[in-house]
Structures are given as C-alpha cells and as structure tokens.
Design a protein around this nucleic acid. Structure first.
Lengths: 124, 124
DNA sequence: CCTTCATTTAACCAACCAGTTAAGCGTATT
DNA sequence: AATACGCTTAACTGGTTGGTTAAATGAAGG
C-alpha cells in the first residue's frame, strides 16, 4: 500500500477498478457481498477481500443483519481525498491565473485613487 | 497497479506519500531530480523511479535542458481524479440529504398543526 | 440436530512495488 | 581529452497484492 496513513490507504483502495466499481454500486444503495459479486467476474472471496481493503481505508462500513453483511459507503474519506487533490490542483491553476490576478490588482489599484483597495489574492 | 487504465494509474501514483510530497513540491515550482531528492530521505534512483511513475500517470511532464531534467505538474489527471471522487461522493451525499429532507418533512408535518416549521439542517 | 446459505479465512501463486548499490549514459566544465 | 555532474538503468531483496480453490465459521430453517 506504500504508506500506512489514511490518505495512502484511500488512494490505494481507489486505484483498483474493481473496487471503484464496488463504490459506484454502493453509491446507489447498500449491498451484500453476494449482490456485489454478481455483476463482477471474480469469485466471492476476492470481493470479500476487496471489501476488507475498502473497510480498512474507512471508505465503507459494514453491518451484520442476520446472515447478511451489508456494505455502506462512507463519504468522509472520499472528501479528504478530493480535498487533497483540489488543494494542489488549485495551487497549480493559481500559477495560470496569477497573471489574471495581477492584472486585476493593477486595475484595482488604478481605480483605488480615492478609496481602499483589497488584495484579490487569497492564500490556501 | 491493479488496473492499467488512466484513473487506476493516477490513484495508484497518489497512493504513495513520497509521490504526494513530490507533487506538493511541484505545485510550487518545477524542479530537477536533485532538487526533489534533497528534502527526501531516499536515494536519487528511487526518486527517479517515482518520477517515472508520475510521468506514466501523466501527472507530470518532463523537459530536458542541458544535463538537467525539470519535472512539471500537469493538472488534467488531478482534475479527472477529483471529478471521479466528487461524482460518487455527491451521489452519496444526495442520499443523505434525501433522508434528511424526508425526516424533516415528516417532523414538519407533525409540528405543523398550528405553526410553520423551518428546517434546522443545512447541507454543507 | 443436521443442513443450507452467506461470508470469511487459509494456503498458495504469479506479478508488482519501493528501496538499495553499482554501473552506464549523456552533457557540461576544465 | 579527461573529469565531473545529473540522471537513469540493472540487478537484487523483502514485502504486498489480487486472484484462485478448498476449508472453516456462523446464523437460519427443516
């Protein structure tokens, strides 16, 4: 898994297409192992282990009801992962829009001959 | 890497903390292999291979300038990855909101025998 | 109680991953 | 031309992964 931290576990879990298919399925509705196995072309033990991986990454929680175990998608880790990506993607995009911001700042300063100008740039 | 598709490659690349550190570095500025190696506690060949992984996932591009090779962050794959996550996270959140809305509606109807009720819950 | 159904664990395999050191390659620098 | 520098490739190691089949667990039902 490379790292043992939360983010590494989440990205590692998401790196498998089968697990992403499972997540897509669980986005609609909670499902049992048998239900999740049906559309996939792998054995139930394999699915069971994928679920274990997803569970260890906290991407899903599971509840037992009789002899069935339902898997339930958790959004928190997905949000964390998306946040991490957005953070750095935005930094990158910032370098593209920095020119725009600069021009805007210049224009603002130009306009601000008689009133206070505020900085268009916002860290984080 | 589990899958050979683009998304799998990107998530797999992001699943390593060293590679995420490299991305964080490259979000600020392009950098050479030596520069990227400095703050890390691993050998240069190791960094070189991490860069290869990032390049294969199209997360970075590289240019040669003299005897230096600069790495440059590409945002497109990051956006794709974030989009995938957001797609399913939003679906999940929607189902929660739906439940909240339902419960709120029920409570509202219950309370609404003599006055108007407003929803205390506010989605993100 | 014995069976059946849903799921997990065990044992095994082939492939991959992240790190190492040592050697190779291509481009300055002297 | 010879040396030094930046980086990559090769060869090896130990640990992990994703799949398999077969056996074990655990709750439900005859």
């Amino acid at each position: 898994m490379a790292g043992t931290d939360q983010l590494s576990a989440v990205f590692s879990a998401l790196s498998d297409p089968t697990r992403r298919a499972i997540i897509a399925e669980l986005a609609d509705r909670d499902a049992t192992v048998t239900e999740l196995t049906a559309p996939l072309s792998i054995s139930m033990p394999a699915v069971s282990r994928h679920l274990k991986v997803l569970e260890r990454a906290a991407l899903i929680s599971r509840s037992r009801s009789g002899k069935w175990r339902a898997s339930h998608l958790e959004s928190a880790p997905l949000r964390e992962a998306a946040d991490w990506i957005e953070r750095y993607r935005r930094l990158w995009d910032a370098s593209l829009t920095r020119l725009d911001a600069h021009l805007a700042a210049v224009q603002a300063a130009d306009r601000a001959t008689d009133r206070t100008a505020d900085d268009p740039r916002d860290p984080e």
